[in-house]
Amino acid sequence: MNVKEKVIEALRSVYDPELNINVVDLGLIYHVDVTVENDVNVTMTLTTPGCPLHDSITTGVRYAVQGIEETRNVDVNLVWEPAWSPEKMTPEGLRLLGR
């Protein structure tokens, strides 16, 4: 498993506490970039601008990635465009919502 795969796996442990679905299956993670020095840049969004769990989720993402031994610096970049839409969810995420 390479570092990028490990990062994505770690992100599956970060849950939206309202929906109880992890940020990967919820489709919140747009990009994971890992440099040759193992600096990690995560580009992500939230289901709605002004989500009250804004700080909690982004901090959770940072902590989860920092918990991987190989990673060095971690940067979490929160974006609103392109906006989140249900199409970004995985089949597992949709299943958990009862869809």
Binding site: S13, T59, G60
Partner: peptide, 14 residues
């Protein structure tokens, strides 16, 4: 729990 998120398992709001 917000400061524990990503470090260990935390309960959901429910």
């Amino acid at each position: 729990y917000s400061k524990e998120m990503g470090k260990k398992a935390v309960p959901s709001l429910k």
